[in-house]
Write a protein that binds this DNA or RNA. Structure first.
Lengths: 184, 184
DNA sequence: TCGTTGAGTCAACGACTGTTGAGCGAAGTG
DNA sequence: CACTTCGCTCAACAGTCGTTGACTCAACGA
């Protein structure tokens, strides 16, 4: 069954990825503070000391775990509003664990807060640039805030009214609202 | 200066309120987990053991601190959308410390999450009732989520584009968006 | 005045946490 | 084969936290 026992370098890569995967899951579920190195190690079936040896500190483990390698490219043509949001990497639907971990921690972990604020500021700037007009920056910020709120309510808080709704239906119902902001 | 040294019962009430006030401030700033009994006690200029003696546990201190006595009544006539939101106790502008403490902790403290979810679910139900029409519940949920997102971005994360904007200007810019959701 | 009550303090316990250094044993190298 | 490398574990340290029990002393009631 399990063919070659794999080389040493390969084993290390796998273990490291197993730790990162477990870390992402637990960080996303409990946030930074309530996540313990021991819990991550247990989920990865590894000794806690190994986690430290690989990542140096809990903070560095978090940074590696929430690092998203590439910005998801937009696929094909979309409705104007979705296109605008898609262009900055915001869309409805299930988010990667790394993003959830980041969002889960952003209100209680200063570093995560700064990271998210920076990312959102960047998205606001891009959106404002695409929108034009007078108070574009404020309207862009409100669009981003709206997406943020819906995502939190849906993915992290689990509002009853949103739990049964598909991402498509949410996006569709939300569209006039976002368009009103985009058009001014 | 300090007239009567105050009676024993009065002193107790003042100390208790001093502790609650300090707790609200620190809970609002750091969230539940990162707030220590010791820090609250220090801010209230009291021994940590006294906090325990008065409130029994950190969890009970939190519950007492975030308890909001009364629902703010809506004042006078408002624009339709603001009236709808005001009716359920949602409005722009500075929020009480207790509310901020609750929101700060809602993503990482399960009890706070449940409390907020319950409150928001209730507001969604009220809003949906006032809106009527077909998918009223989903649209109401998105309105509440929008308010939530803007509040988080503005008060807790401090998005650059929102930091300089007055609550009135935000409310005004946001109005067409919310109306689009309310009208369907 | 004297005993009682209760606000407030002090020192400590036990649990948990991030983190560390020594060591084991198998994979790699000559 | 002998020797080194390194993935990995074990046991422990040091600090912090919520929580507790004994204690001090001024306000109170009779």
């Amino acid at each position: 069954m399990e063919g070659t026992p794999t080389s040493r370098a390969e084993r290390r890569r796998r273990t490291e990825e197993r730790i990162l995967s477990a870390a992402r899951a637990i960080f996303a579920e409990r946030g930074f503070q309530r996540t313990t190195i021991r819990a991550v190690a247990a989920a990865a079936e590894v000794d806690p000391a190994l986690v430290m040896q690989y990542f140096g500190s809990k903070q560095e483990l978090f940074e590696q775990a929430v690092r998203i390698p590439s910005i998801p490219p937009l696929d094909g043509e979309l409705e104007p509003v979705e296109e605008l949001l898609g262009r900055i990497g915001m869309k409805m639907g299930p988010l990667p664990q790394a993003t959830l971990a980041m969002m889960r921690s952003m209100l209680t972990h200063p570093d995560a807060a700064e990271e998210v604020r920076g990312k959102l500021d960047g998205q606001v700037a891009q959106l404002a640039d695409a929108i034009g007009s007078g108070d574009a920056e404020l309207r862009a910020a409100l669009m981003v805030s709206t997406m943020l709120g819906v995502t939190i309510a849906h993915q992290l808080l689990g509002l009853t009214a949103l739990r049964g709704a598909s991402p498509e239906r949410i996006a569709e119902t939300l569209r006039p609202s976002l368009r009103a902001l985009a058009d001014g």
